[in-house]
């Protein structure tokens, strides 16, 4: 398969491990630099982090409700990590860690287990009512459909992010082979837009999945 050259490639370990560690180091470094000198009137990079914080707070309050503010650290760090790891693929010589199914599957499984654990903790035994459907007569059929849809959620959640990031990287590489001038640069500009969009979609869907298991059954 076509692959763009990688700048940092330690022999023996997969390339996305290096990239994940690089992204984590970058986030820690940036957070340290920003957190050391906080200002009342935020500068460029501080306002970016504040934007993510305020946006997460808003969405959690809007979708989950008052009890949603507990999940702010997790969801906001999802947003930062996925955004940085998507965007690092645009730099030549690096590749996105989210372009492999392993990274996205781990993130999706965290959301899957967390949402069900939180739902069981809140509703106790009544949590099974979510899988029984509206009428008690059709419950034996509905439980199969509901369990299947619940199990396919982390699958599609992981595959969506992976397929988007992988496809756009592949498309840029293919275009570089076809037309080496100017046109791949336009596609790389589109890549930044897709990166932002997919990070937002993953982040929003993880909030929605938690909200779905927290809401009251009627």
């Amino acid at each position: 398969m076509l692959k763009s050259p990688i700048l940092i490639n330690i022999h023996g370990i997969p390339v996305y491990w290096t990239m994940t560690i690089l992204v984590m180091g970058l986030i820690l470094f940036t957070a340290f630099i920003v957190g050391r000198s906080l200002k009342v009137v935020p500068g460029g990079i501080q306002s970016f982090f504040e934007l993510i914080f305020i946006m997460t707070e808003y969405f959690l309050k809007e979708i989950i409700g008052e009890e949603g503010s507990v999940y702010l650290p997790l969801i906001a760090s999802f947003a930062v990590f996925i955004l940085f790891s998507n965007l690092i693929g645009s730099i030549p010589g690096f590749t996105s860690p989210t372009a492999t199914i392993d990274t996205t599957a781990v993130l999706a499984l965290i959301v899957f287990f967390l949402s069900h654990a939180v739902g069981i903790k809140k509703h106790r035994a009544r949590y099974i009512k979510k899988f029984l459907g509206p009428l008690i007569i059709i419950a034996p059929i509905m439980i199969i459909i509901e369990v299947m849809s619940a199990l396919s959620r982390p699958f599609s959640h992981a595959l969506r992010l992976f397929a988007n990031i992988f496809a756009e990287e592949f498309m840029v590489t293919v275009l570089l082979f076809l037309l080496p001038w100017a046109i791949p640069a336009i596609m790389m500009y589109m890549q930044v837009f897709t990166d932002l969009m997919q990070a937002f979609v993953f982040y929003l869907l993880s909030i929605i999945y938690i909200a779905l298991s927290l809401e009251e059954t009627h």
Partner: peptide, 20 residues
Amino acid sequence: MITGMAIMESLALYALLITF
């Protein structure tokens, strides 16, 4: 609208994944 379109676009990308 753009969020929904990104989710729909991923449906086409599942097909692209099968192709790959």
